[in-house]
Design a protein around this nucleic acid. Structure first.
Lengths: 216, 216
DNA sequence: GTTACCTTTGACCAAACGGTCAATTCTATT
DNA sequence: AATAGAATTGACCGTTTGGTCAAAGGTAAC
């Protein structure tokens, strides 16, 4: 008999246990890094949150820094995906509205990713600096050009595209990063889907009123 | 001769050296806490930044937590002052415009205060939780009522006041907390007064367009 | 059941942590 | 010059930190 592909134990180069544990570690690391930042987080705390001994965690990720890089990379994918989807050939109003909606969804669905990203920025982005100046800068440049084009066509008011993008980033991210403040000031418990729907409507309304050309 | 008030060495209950050292420590602590958060900051690092030995620092502030509380209190004053100045009896456009201007000024002039506040929020505001639910919530409620009144008078479009406030907080804070990202993506070095003037103009324009009623 | 490798952990290490303390130096007032 | 109190620090303490390692326990393939 020819050698059979062992499907369960070695799915894409990893053992079943390896895949399960790496996922558990990443999930635990995301919450701890989100709460306390890179330096404030401890390997022991992450290991405990992953229900695992510290040496065992370090068997899967060879250092705290390596684990942090892995988490940041995962974070980045979630966080920047929505912007890529803005399409110059479609309607500016629906494109911006959908972008805001996707960013609010990301804040609601992955609050830790948002907070890790924020924490990395607060300390001056030692890990992400190159990425910011490279990939992110050129992505923003491309999307700014799209917005400029819409403005030239008279489909958007003449606003500064980069500050529009910053405003949308800042506002949507706020509901994840400053969730405690939002909840305390708004007088809510945990924010549910209905709350986020309301946030999305309120933010979209102000922003779109702010950038759509006046009719007539 | 009657005892003379020693003016220099004991200005408001503190010796000259005490006042000087406490100020130096606070300044050093602000940058270190801003970079690394409460847990990530070390007393040694703050002492070195203040050009002082660790035991000497702890002679002025009896623990890391006490120093953090002092810094946070100082931060809070700077950070919330602008909102208090919004005046119901004046013109909504100029009031909102001035509020945005003052917040941008605060981001430009006290970036560390902003980042410390952000860091405290990221970890769930263990120190500020009561303040958020008390003073801050009622302050926002009062100012929301002012905005509601302006809306009722037809001087503002019917938008949700609390999300307008969140949007202004988020956007202005963004330029301090995410300064690395802003600089990298915008392709600037350090942000100067001219940059902040441009930011203020761009943000005010979008926000005011978004909330002012359309002319007849 | 044997083999080979993957996984797990208790014990440990040097360094860094927040904080204390006794001893010393500096400073202002008499 | 004397003195009392303020300021400063080297040495130190117990604990926690990120990380190592040898040894033991599982797991899958033959």
């Amino acid at each position: 008999m020819a050698t059979v592909e062992p499907q369960v134990p070695r799915a894409n180069g990893k053992t079943r246990i390896q895949a399960r544990n790496e996922a558990r570690i990443m999930a635990a690391a995301e919450t701890v890094f989100a709460d306390h930042g890179f330096r404030g987080a401890t390997v022991d705390e992450i290991a405990q949150a992953a229900d695992m001994s510290k040496p065992n965690l370090l068997y899967y990720f060879k250092s705290k820094a390596a684990l942090y890089r892995a988490v940041l990379e995962h974070t980045l994918r979630i966080w920047l995906e929505p912007l890529k989807e803005i399409d110059a050939d479609k309607d500016p109003e629906t494109e911006i509205r959908n972008y805001i909606a996707r960013k609010i969804e990301a804040s609601a669905g992955h609050p830790n990713a948002s907070r890790i990203f924020a924490s990395e920025m607060l300390r001056g982005a030692p890990v992400l600096a190159d990425h910011l100046r490279g990939d992110l800068k050129s992505l923003v440049a491309r999307k700014s050009a799209v917005i400029e084009q819409w403005i030239a066509e008279g489909r958007l008011a003449p606003i500064d595209p980069i500050h529009l993008i910053f405003m949308i980033w800042a506002t949507t991210q706020h509901y994840a990063d400053f969730a405690v403040q939002v909840k305390a000031v708004w007088g809510k418990g945990d924010l549910g889907p209905k709350d986020f729907a309301q946030i999305e409507a309120a933010v979209s309304e102000i922003v779109l009123r702010g950038i759509l050309p006046r009719k007539g």
